[in-house]
Amino acid sequence: MTRFGKLLNQNRIAHARKRKTGNKVMLSLTGVLTALALVPLVWIIVYVILRGGKSINLDFFTQLPKPLGMAGGGVLHAIEGTLIVTLLAGIFSVPPGVLAAFYAARFPNTPLGMALRFSTDVLSGVPSIVVGLFAYAVLVKPMGHYSALAGGAALAVLMLPTIIRTTEEMLKLVPHTLREGSLALGASEWKTSLSVLFPAALNGIFTGFLLALARAAGETAPLLFTTLGNERYDLKAIISGGVQSHQGFFQILDRIVNQPVDSLPLTLWKYAQQPYPERIEQAWAVALVLMLLVLIVNITARVWIQVRTRRMEG
């Protein structure tokens, strides 16, 4: 045995125990850290369900808020507001997002394609509160008032990067034989894009859209100075009032989207800071609704993707 063989042997025996213990300790530690990270998740979900569940009843979903200090009432106005604002956000973000994704997937290495990718990355990193400032400057200020419209636009900016990225990924997954098949039959490129690629990728694009929407529905910061909040917002009254006074469709629509509205996260934020116990309990209930909404959409979308990719692979 060489000199080094002996040296190695001495050291090896001296170190063997230390190395083995270190291995065991550190490997267990990674498991412990993983478990530790899940503690807040379980804690929040369980606690919000238990506490929020107490204040949830039919009134909560169907009534407008009672005046401060009075028990009862609901958050119908915020549910309506959330639906309207996220619907607007979807309308504003999906068409440009999908079209830009077609460009990104089709011309990834052109200067414009790279600039698009960079912009998407930057947009996804912009803090949501900054997007709120932007929407205020370009919409609220020129229009002269807060509105659901401005809130929807702000959320749309936040959703755009996710929609572009998931759509692009999904388009790239479409087998290129499918494209060539269509092109070879003499279909033009845009027909191929819309009649072959888009339907083939639709499922994936839709789940991506749902995830982005769930995220947007939980956002508060960009709405603080775009939709502002409005406890007296009453969709039913707006519509019935409009119909009674023989207003046209667009006039009613204008009244729906062109005034301040509330949303669930905005309501939660305001209620949590008020010194009235009823409101704080309602804040927990709002948290429950919001959390369930987001979690259900998330889990459904993931299961859906999982099932579909398995079917495609298998």
């Binding site: 606690y47 948290a287 919001l290």
Partner: peptide, 26 residues
Amino acid sequence: TPLTWMVELLAAIPSVVYGLWGIFIF
């Protein structure tokens, strides 16, 4: 897969819910 999902769900919970839980519990 379940563990990956659970970790990612941490990111799905809305910020205001974290805040509410933060004020009263955490």
